[in-house]
Structures are given as structure tokens and as C-alpha cells.
Simulated scan of single mutants.
Amino acid sequence: MTLLEEAAFHGQPFDIGTVFVHSANPTGAATVVQALTRWNYRVRRATA
């Protein structure tokens, strides 16, 4: 996640498709989704 955020911060976001967040930790997954969405990455949370 940090690498994606840093690239976007420096104006060079990665040209990737959708990031799927899969985690058993709902709070952690929400944090990742929020952070990457803030940098305009397409993010979906996968639920188990």
C-alpha cells in the first residue's frame, strides 16, 4: 500500500486495474480501501 500511495503522492500513480483488498481484519481492510481510494485507485473489498 505504501508504494502505491508514494507513487500517487509524487504524481506518478501506477496504471493498474482494480486493487482487491482481502483481509480477515475489517478495520484494517477499511483503512486500506480508504487510503487507496483517496489517491484515486480503483479499490474493491473482497469479503470472505
Rank of each mutant, 00 (worst) to 15 (best):
Y41D: 06
E5M: 08
D15L: 08
V19E: 02
P26R: 11
F20L: 04
F14T: 05
V19L: 15
R45H: 06
H22T: 10
F20Y: 15
L3V: 07
T31L: 14
H22P: 00
V43P: 03
P26N: 12
V21M: 02
T2E: 15
R38N: 13
A48K: 02
G11E: 11
R38C: 10
F20E: 03
Q34G: 08
G17K: 08
N25R: 14
R45Y: 07
L4T: 03
H10T: 07
F14G: 02
Q34K: 11
R44H: 14
Q34P: 00
A8R: 12
A24C: 06
F14V: 10
L36C: 05
V32Y: 00
F14D: 04
R38V: 08
A24P: 11
P13M: 04
V32H: 00
Y41S: 04
Q12N: 08
F20K: 06
H22R: 10
H10A: 03
D15N: 10
Q34F: 05
V19A: 04
A29F: 01
T37V: 04
V43M: 14
A46N: 02
H22E: 10
E6R: 10
L3Q: 07
A7K: 13
L36G: 01
A30G: 15
Q34V: 09
A35P: 00
A35H: 12
A48H: 09
D15G: 01
L36N: 02
H22A: 15
V43I: 05
G11P: 08
A46H: 06
A46T: 02
P13Y: 09
G28F: 10
V19H: 05
A7G: 01
T37P: 00
L3C: 03
N40I: 03
W39N: 14
A8H: 11
F20C: 01
N40H: 11
T18C: 07
P13A: 07
L4Y: 15
L3D: 13
M1I: 05
P13G: 11
A35F: 02
E5R: 12
R44Q: 06
T47E: 10
V32D: 01
D15R: 11
N25D: 13
H22G: 12
V32R: 00
A7F: 05
V21S: 03
N25P: 01
M1G: 11
T18L: 01
V32W: 00
E5I: 08
H10E: 15
T47Y: 03
S23Y: 01
P26G: 04
G11C: 09
V21E: 08
V21L: 07
A7D: 13
L36E: 01
R42V: 03
D15W: 05
Q12P: 00
N40A: 11
M1L: 14
S23E: 13
D15P: 10
R44A: 12
A7E: 13
T47V: 09
R45K: 09
T47S: 13
A29P: 01
R44M: 09
N40C: 09
V21A: 09
